[in-house]
Write a protein that binds this DNA or RNA. Structure first.
Lengths: 149, 149
DNA sequence: AGAATATATTTGCATAATGCAACTTTTATT
DNA sequence: AATAAAAGTTGCATTATGCAAATATATTCT
């Protein structure tokens, strides 16, 4: 079991490298947390502040400040929900969509690079395994406060 | 290829949750970066500041401050190399070893929990896949400055 | 042998991210 | 109408980060 810990430790470290060198688009540096936010807003349809914060496991006060930064950078738009003005709905601006797409492309290029070192069978096995891992992690008590299965 | 990106994004997020809720030992909070440092010092035999900093991909100035914190917490010992006093060699104190072992145990308990949701074949496949992934990531140009294969 | 250069680490400085408590605004409940 | 709850913001303090400059030590050159 000790070797399994090391395997995960190495993976964590390598993802740490990847996270550190993320993300630059058109000379503009996007921090990791900003990248994650753009991704989730892109993924969810008209999400609220709370929904995204929960998905990311981020404190709402920290999240609020990050969103303010992104609004200031003109990457995110924030609008009150007509039915309940306490709730703010988030969406990406045109530039935000562009940035999100560019980061997506960078990640895909990287993943292609990683998978270029594997044959087709290995690639399918790895992807299936990560899916398995994700599902198994979702079932643990450590996981995400929001049922995101 | 888009789904693969999402699979990795979910995994990154879940590890983010895990990283956030790491690590508390005997009522003492150990930050993630501290936990990583203790782990690497434990792993490498009489490593220098530079060696660990490179392994973790951390700026040496940031690393220097973290090590100072750990020395102050009496978890790490720092000694000049007799042959070259510019070089500091790091080692864990008795308490540092205890903390590192406790975190190791927590991680192993967590991994057991995760793997409890898989059968033996699935577990072996996942571990083999992570190994594959680690090796493939090591081969990309994004990876670690130190040849850590 | 002394000067110049290189190396390992530390310090000064400024920035970014974080999370708790308290606050404001809005909606729901009594 | 008053009270409670919910969504998000602000004040405050802490932690981590990385660049430039500095210090101490080792190596190389003259």
């Amino acid at each position: 079991m000790e070797n399994i810990r090391e395997v995960f430790q190495v993976m964590t470290r390598r993802f740490g490298f990847l996270n550190k060198n993320c993300c630059t688009v058109g000379g503009q540096d996007i921090s990791l947390i900003h990248s994650h936010i753009l991704y989730e807003i892109d993924k969810q349809h008209n999400p609220s502040m709370q929904q995204i914060a929960e998905t990311l496991g981020t404190d709402i006060t920290t999240f609020s400040r990050q969103v303010q930064s992104l609004v200031k950078m003109n990457l995110v738009k924030k609008s009150p929900l007509p039915e309940d003005k306490r709730i703010s709905v988030l969406s990406l601006t045109t530039e935000g969509k562009f940035i999100a797409a560019a980061i997506d492309e960078q990640m895909n290029v990287y993943l292609k690079d990683v998978f270029a070192n594997m044959n087709e069978f290995e690639r399918e096995t790895v992807v299936r395994s990560i899916n398995l891992l994700n599902d198994a992690m979702a079932k643990t008590s450590y996981c995400c406060t929001t049922p995101m299965r």
